[in-house]
Amino acid sequence: MSYSFSGIDHVQLAAPRGSEDESRRFYGDILGMKEIPKPVNLAKRGGVWFKCGAQQLHIGIQDDFIPAKKAHPAFDVDHLQALRKRMVEHGVKVKEDESLEGAERFYVNDPFGNRLEFLHWYH
C-alpha cells in the first residue's frame, strides 16, 4: 500500500445559523478549547474552529440543522473528573452510561443537542 493514515485532522459538528457566540461560550469558555482562526475564504460561511489537543474541532453552520443524537466525537481528557465538575458548575447536564472496560466516561449534549463523549483510558 502506498499510503497510510496518520490520524484525524479535525471533527466537524453542525450548529444552527447564528450560534457562533454560544459555541464560543460552551466550547471555549466552559470546555476551555482555544479558538483558532478560520481561513479567510471559509470565514464567510460562519461557524467557529477550536484547537483540541493535536486535532481541531470545527463547528459548522447548517441551515436545516438537526443535532447528532447517536454519532458523536469522543474526547480523551486528562483529569476527567475536573472537567465533569466544571460542567456541572456551569449547569451542563452530565449523562452517565454503561461502563467501558478500561475507561471512565460520560456524555453531555452541547447547547445545540449534539452528543459529546468525554473519556479517559486507564493505562
Rank of each mutant, 00 (worst) to 15 (best):
M1L: 12
M1P: 09
M1H: 12
S4G: 11
I8L: 15
I8D: 07
I8R: 12
D9A: 14
V11F: 08
Q12H: 12
A15D: 01
S19W: 01
S19C: 02
D21F: 11
E22I: 10
S23T: 06
R24C: 09
R24D: 01
Y27E: 03
Y27L: 05
I30S: 07
M33D: 02
M33E: 01
M33Y: 05
P37R: 12
K38N: 07
P39Q: 10
V40F: 09
N41E: 15
N41T: 10
L42T: 14
A43K: 13
K44D: 13
R45I: 12
R45L: 15
G46T: 03
V48T: 05
W49I: 04
W49H: 07
F50H: 00
K51G: 06
Q55R: 06
Q55H: 02
H58Y: 04
G60I: 04
I61A: 01
Q62L: 14
D64N: 14
I66W: 03
A68I: 06
A74N: 08
D76Y: 08
V77S: 00
H79D: 13
L80N: 06
Q81P: 04
Q81C: 09
A82V: 15
R84C: 08
H90L: 03
K93D: 11
K93W: 02
D97W: 07
E98S: 13
L100H: 11
G102E: 08
A103T: 12
A103E: 14
E104C: 04
R105K: 14
Y107K: 05
V108I: 10
V108T: 03
N109R: 04
D110L: 02
P111L: 04
P111E: 09
P111H: 07
F112Y: 01
N114V: 00
L116T: 01
L116S: 01
L116Y: 07
L119F: 14
